[in-house]
Simulated assay, not measured.
Amino acid sequence: MTIQEVQGIRKQFEYYRMLADKTILLLSQEELNWQYNEESNSIAMLMRHLSGNLASRFTHFFTEDGEKQWRNRDQEFAIGVYDRHELITNWEKGWAILFETLDSITSENIDTVVKIRNQDHTVGEALYRQLAHYPYHIGQIVYIGKLIKNQAWQSLSIPRNKSLVYNQEKFNNPNADTHFTDDYLKK
């Protein structure tokens, strides 16, 4: 893994966070706590889970196991009504820890072996593990948001039936050495 790859991974995390943030902003506290049924998660539960995972995995990333003893994963999914302000505060803290950790990765520590649940991971493996995990849940957040908002939903990426226009705009521009997330993260 290279520092350039870490920078690309950072952009991917920023992109998926942006999708979740835009969804969360569209929803009331009641909507954040809505569950389809008892077995499904509310967006609030998913936010609690991701916040807990972010804090656990990336606090003291290089020196402590990514599954902290202070974390209570099961409690993150407890059915309840959760305060919007508290959810967003913890959400912000978790993402800040991730981005601080990503920004601390250097050529001197990139080859460090880190642990998650007492299993060795290269820095790259640990990052890719979370890069698969977070979008999985963020996709759930977006999907639940779409269910709740229905006709009032606002597209977060390429709107339905607009792919041709979007692609034409891309191909009308000169080839660029940019990251695909740049278009979305500028908005």
Rank of each mutant, 00 (worst) to 15 (best):
T101P: 04
R160W: 11
Q4H: 12
D65Y: 03
P174K: 14
E30G: 04
D103L: 11
T122N: 05
E39G: 15
E30F: 05
L102D: 06
S42L: 09
D74F: 08
E5H: 11
E30A: 14
T181N: 08
I116Q: 12
Q168P: 03
E92S: 11
K22P: 02
I148N: 07
E31Y: 01
N175T: 11
H85L: 11
S40N: 05
K146A: 08
N41T: 07
I148R: 08
F58R: 01
W34T: 09
S163N: 10
N33H: 07
G66F: 00
S42C: 11
E38I: 09
I43L: 07
L102H: 09
L26C: 14
N175A: 12
T178H: 10
K146S: 05
T89W: 07
N175G: 05
W34R: 08
Y134H: 07
Y136Q: 10
Y82I: 02
L98F: 04
T2M: 11
K186T: 12
T178R: 12
S104I: 09
Q119N: 15
E39N: 15
G124V: 06
H60F: 11
E86F: 08
Y36P: 06
S104P: 08
K93W: 04
L127R: 01
T178P: 02
T23F: 04
N150V: 07
V81E: 13
K93P: 02
I97T: 15
R57G: 06
S56H: 02
R48H: 06
L32I: 11
W153M: 09
